[in-house]
């Protein structure tokens, strides 16, 4: 089965994000008073093949734990979409 995963990593809430802070201040100074908080993260689009949805999820967790995110400072989440064969 073919899947597409959209993986997001971002700094944990407990970790300061100076890039996000600076961008938030820029938005505020441009007049976007609506902006309340902003965190910058990374986005990965991954095509993968797996026997089942469960296997695909297991595989993505393993990839995230081993390489894609650093658990000391980051957290991750993902959405998985099955592609028509």
């Amino acid at each position: 089965m073919q899947f597409k995963a959209r993986i997001h990593t971002s700094l944990k809430k407990s970790v300061l994000d100076p890039q996000g802070q600076t961008t938030l201040h820029a938005l505020a100074s441009m007049g976007f008073k609506e902006a309340q908080s902003l965190r910058i993260g990374k986005y990965f689009e991954l095509a993968l093949e797996a026997e089942s949805r469960a296997k695909a999820e297991e595989c993505i967790h393993a990839m995230c734990d081993k390489l894609l995110h650093n658990p000391v400072i980051e957290e991750y989440s993902f959405e998985l979409q099955e592609l028509p064969s």
Partner: peptide, 17 residues
């Protein structure tokens, strides 16, 4: 060394960016 787990912790962007 941090990424390899030989030392604890991690690196962030410099505070001033």
């Amino acid at each position: 060394l941090l990424e390899a787990g030989l030392l604890p912790g991690a690196m962030l962007r410099n505070k001033t960016l």
